[in-house]
């Protein structure tokens, strides 16, 4: 591993200026479960790692039914699913937080790192998208800007972040009445693997819980970036809950997926999985509303 400098930042302003000074030769370090491996394997060379996980702003974890969830970018998965109120409000995010690696990985891996690493197969990104998460970004000039989760990743490993910018936190709106969310993935093992395909869904149902008021669907590992199936989602609005409406959405999702073949699966298998997993994610979210 090439030598680099390690600097723990004490404030957001210090972090962004430490990053900006070195341009693309500096990277933030959160849990390190992607970054340390990448640098060790020489897939990324750096002059400086800026540790951003001891800042108050990247560690917030606060939920209220009125204002929603503020989730610091560096909060490890383990802390998120240890919180009962957050688990009840955002079950789709918890589905993903609980399957990233094993226990030791979840003690370090953050949702912010999962998003910024920008893998098309990242498990927390579809839940962030279907829950309407907004990414709060700090810049080196003291500015902040907000980007919706579905616009954050621009290519495999690439994001909207400019040199010197830091993802500080997520703002996730409070769950509407009669709503829930669900995420699942297909892997050939029971745990400790990367998604062949992943699917997340959130739904809002009417009071009778027989039809869909609105829905959001997002897919992992079937396009260069995590995919927000916007038109498919919109087409479910106002539909009665039935095999027919769910199957139609699953087929429409298959039509917009553009998977590749690689060692984890063929394009054909992935397209098939998009249908199965979209159906299960939607039905899973609907079931959770009915059981609540």
């Amino acid at each position: 591993m090439r030598a680099f400098e390690y600097v723990p930042a004490k404030t957001v302003a210090e972090a962004t200026s430490l990053l900006a000074e070195k341009g693309d030769q500096a990277k933030p370090l959160a849990g390190g479960t992607d970054l340390i491996v990448m640098v060790r394997e020489n897939r990324r060379q750096l002059d400086r790692m800026v540790d951003i996980k001891d800042l108050p702003e990247t560690n917030v974890l606060s939920y209220s039914p009125d204002t929603g969830l503020e989730l610091g970018a560096a909060v490890p998965c383990h802390e998120i699913y240890a919180d009962g109120a957050i688990s009840a409000a955002y079950p789709g995010l918890i589905d993903a937080a609980k399957i990233i690696g094993g226990t030791a990985i979840q003690g370090r891996a953050s949702v912010g790192g999962n998003l910024c690493n920008a893998s098309p197969a990242a498990d927390t990104i579809p839940p962030l998208i279907v829950l309407g998460a907004i990414c709060v970004i700090a810049g080196p000039d003291g500015s902040t800007r907000e980007v919706p989760a579905e616009q954050f990743c621009t290519a495999p490993g690439q994001t909207v972040l400019e040199n010197g910018e830091l993802l500080v936190s997520f703002k996730i709106p409070p769950p509407p009445k009669n709503s829930s969310s669900f995420y699942l993935r297909f892997i050939p093992r029971n745990e400790m693997d990367i998604a062949v395909v992943g699917a997340g869904a959130s739904v809002v149902l009417d009071d009778a819980k027989t039809s869909i008021v609105s829905a959001r669907i997002s897919l992992a590992a079937v396009a260069p970036t995590p995919l927000f199936a916007e038109e498919v989602s919109d087409s479910l609005a106002g539909k009665e809950i039935s095999d027919e409406s769910i199957n139609a959405a699953a087929e429409a999702a298959q039509a917009i997926a553009s998977p590749i073949s690689d060692m984890r699966g063929t394009a054909e298998q992935r397209t098939h999985l998009v249908g199965v997993l979209t159906r299960r994610a939607l039905n899973g979210a609907i079931q959770r509303v009915k059981e609540a």
């Binding site: 390690y6 723990p8 370090l29 390190g32 340390i36 490890p76 226990t103 990985i105 003690g107 370090r108």
Partner: peptide
Amino acid sequence: RLVNSCLVLGAE
């Protein structure tokens, strides 16, 4: 908290 020491920097 359980962690993998190969994925932590000594400096941390």
